[in-house]
Amino acid sequence: MVGLDFGTALSVLNSIAHACRTGAAVAHPQTLATLLGHPQVFLQLRPVDPTWHTTSLFNVAREYFGSVPQAVQVVMADKEGRFPWDAGHSLGVRQPSLWEPYPGGWPDENTQ
């Protein structure tokens, strides 16, 4: 969760996990603000492109599960509700675009 302080990011991620555990329809891309009770934070879940699975971002998943399960990225909009793929997006920090194919060159790149 790029762009949020630790406490807010933890709350948002825990809310998403709780929604999933209770059977809420958390389809992606879906705006989650109302569902999660965080009306000031506009979010969407985007599927992570499988080309990212060989990077160091997913080392823990490979270590514990032997492979990378289907992953989604929680993407945050700016204060005007614009997402990184929208014109005029201005969050102030750059979120990695894991929904796009991996361009190469990630720090500490790891291959399976």
Rank of each mutant, 00 (worst) to 15 (best):
P107G: 08
L43T: 08
W106E: 08
V93I: 07
T31R: 15
I16Y: 05
T31C: 11
H38E: 07
P47M: 01
F65E: 10
A33H: 14
R21I: 08
D5F: 05
Y64K: 11
W99Y: 15
T8F: 05
V75P: 00
G37T: 12
R94V: 15
S56M: 04
S97M: 07
L36Q: 02
V26Q: 05
G105R: 07
C20D: 14
F83S: 00
L13F: 14
A25K: 13
P47I: 01
F83Y: 10
V48R: 00
Q44M: 06
F6Y: 12
F65A: 10
G23D: 04
P47E: 05
F83A: 02
F58P: 00
N110V: 15
D108R: 14
T31Y: 10
V48L: 01
F83V: 02
S11N: 13
A25R: 12
A25L: 11
V60S: 02
R82L: 05
G37Y: 14
P69R: 06
G92P: 00
R94W: 13
A77W: 04
L10V: 14
V60E: 00
H28V: 12
L57H: 03
F83G: 01
E63D: 08
S67T: 12
Q73H: 03
L57P: 00
N110E: 12
S97W: 03
L35I: 02
Q70T: 04
T54Y: 00
R82C: 01
V41K: 12
W85M: 07
H53C: 03
R82H: 10
D5T: 05
K79M: 15
A24W: 04
T22R: 12
T22E: 15
P39E: 06
M1E: 06
H28D: 14
A87R: 09
T34Q: 13
Q44L: 09
T8I: 11
R94A: 15
G23W: 11
H53F: 13
L98D: 04
L32K: 03
A17T: 14
V75N: 01
C20Q: 14
L36R: 03
A25F: 05
P47F: 00
G23H: 06
T22S: 12
P107H: 08
F6K: 10
G104P: 14
R94C: 15
E80S: 13
M1Y: 14
L35T: 04
G81W: 05
A9E: 09
N110L: 13
G88Q: 11
P69L: 05
V60G: 00
V74S: 02
L4P: 05
E100L: 13
F65V: 02
G23T: 08
P96I: 05
L57I: 08
G105A: 08
G92N: 01
T51D: 09
P103I: 10
W99K: 03
A19G: 08
V48H: 00
A27L: 15
F83E: 00
Q95T: 13
G23Y: 07
P107L: 12
L10Q: 15
E63W: 05
H28Q: 10
Q30I: 06
A17W: 10
A27P: 13
K79E: 09
L57S: 04
L10I: 12
G105C: 09
G81M: 06
G37W: 15
W106T: 07
Y64V: 15
V74D: 02
R46G: 00
P29K: 09
A25T: 11
A17C: 10
